[in-house]
């Protein structure tokens, strides 16, 4: 008995608007991507065939359906470039996720154990970079990592190295970029679960003679597991399809599927093939995405 919800009509309108919007602009586009991934590329506008024309009636439609084929998928799996792109995306995203976790955990832990009065400020400091443009944050690293960049200048002027290091345009730069850009996504859920933790459990373990490192592994880590899992999904899933970071920081040998899709679409103008690339990427990610959604939903039900 509240808000709009008392009147059935009100409830329905509240539900219908966002529902319809997401159906038309989120779900329907995926179906179109799938359909076009079964088409062939042509020199026309739009650059694929068959297009579904309703002019031809049912028989015309059936004709179009018969022209669909799985050729693009066969091509994807026969060409090493695509298979390698998928594999190396998964590898780069996986390693980056582990790195983000290893760097983010001490930060989140430090925040959760800091004096209560500091916490809002620290939280703000983690969120603030998240609000500043992704593109700008990646761009900032170009100036630091390039051959004549700030890092090389600094290291050479202090005499640590004699010749400039090549970091930009390598996979190392991509790792740095992903770790840097996605760090807040990891720290925030970790902090949320660490802050909620009951400190008396740690004291009890301590009183019973459990050494601090063991307390950490036996109590702190398992209790922060929801935060760890949420953070890992929030980093891993978007990182697999990342385009900006490998494109700006990576070299020509950096294969990531987001970049391959972009090149296929914008440079080769092969819309059907890039659609097929997107469909396979979605299939790879659909299980992690569903687990992530399930967790979100359960968390929400727990809170309410």
């Amino acid at each position: 008995m509240n808000g709009f919800s008392t009147s059935r009509a009100g409830r329905l309108i509240v539900r219908l608007l966002p529902y319809a919007w997401l159906l038309v602009f989120f779900l329907l586009p995926f179906l179109i991507v799938f359909k076009i991934s079964l088409s062939q590329v042509t020199l026309a506008i739009p650059p694929y065939m068959p297009t579904f024309d309703l002019v031809g009636g049912i028989s015309g439609l059936m004709d179009s359906v018969r022209q669909l084929s799985f050729e693009n998928y066969a091509f994807l799996f026969s060409d090493r470039l695509y298979v390698l792109s998928y594999l190396s995306s998964l590898q780069i995203a996986g390693i980056s996720t582990l790195l983000v976790l290893m760097i983010g955990y001490p930060i989140a832990y430090g925040m959760a154990r800091s004096p209560r009065a500091w916490r809002p400020t620290l939280l703000m400091l983690v969120i603030l970079p998240f609000w500043t443009s992704f593109l700008i944050r990646v761009y900032a690293w170009i100036g630091i990592l390039s051959r004549e960049g700030l890092l090389n200048n600094f290291l050479m002027s202090t005499g640590i190295i004699d010749a400039p290091l090549t970091i930009l345009s390598t996979n190392i730069a991509v790792y740095i970029g992903i770790v840097y850009s996605y760090l807040p996504f990891m720290v925030l859920p970790l902090y949320a679960s660490l802050e909620r933790m009951d400190e008396s459990l740690l004291e009890a373990a301590n009183d019973l003679g459990c050494p601090p490192p063991k307390t950490f592994w036996v109590i702190t880590v398992p209790l922060s597991l929801p935060g760890i899992v949420a953070g890992c999904f929030l980093v891993f899933i978007p990182a697999v399809g990342e385009f900006v970071i490998p494109d700006l920081l990576g070299g020509s040998q950096t294969l990531m599927i987001g970049r391959t899709l972009w090149a296929e679409f914008f440079n080769n103008r092969d819309w059907p093939l890039s659609s097929a690339v997107a469909v396979i990427l979605l299939l790879i990610l659909v299980i992690p995405i569903m687990i992530f959604q399930n967790m979100q939903q359960r968390q929400q039900e727990k809170n309410s």
């Binding site: 966002p18 997401l22 989120f26 586009p29 991507v33 978007p238 399809g241 987001g258 899709l261 659609s275």
Partner: peptide, 16 residues
Amino acid sequence: MVYAPLVMPEVITGLS
């Protein structure tokens, strides 16, 4: 549909 776009790679959303 509400939670998926939070993690959906941008290239997929853009292309679709």
